[in-house]
Amino acid sequence: MLRELTLGERNLTELASPFDMSFPAASKHVRVLEEADLVRRRVEGRSHVCTINAEPLKNVSDWTNGFRRFWEERFEALDNYLEELQKKERRDDA
């Protein structure tokens, strides 16, 4: 469902159809996603239009890639720091 929503806004019927879900079942699933603040829903006439809220997903991605990401970022910071240190040493020597 979330993957579908990354492609654009979908109404509930569109969201339910690929999963062979009933309308109430889809509505329940969306409610859980709403509670997790991952999906926003607005009512237009008889149609429930859903959009994805990417902000918390960023955290999820941080979480699953956490360990590698963490160390890659630390190594990047170390690289910059060592460069700075050596520049400073050269300036001090000059």
Partner: peptide, 17 residues
């Protein structure tokens, strides 16, 4: 990641859904 999250959230749904 999205699929994993979806599955995780689905696990919190009542069994019918």
């Amino acid at each position: 990641t999205l699929d994993k999250l979806d599955a995780f959230l689905a696990g919190r749904l009542p069994s019918s859904a």
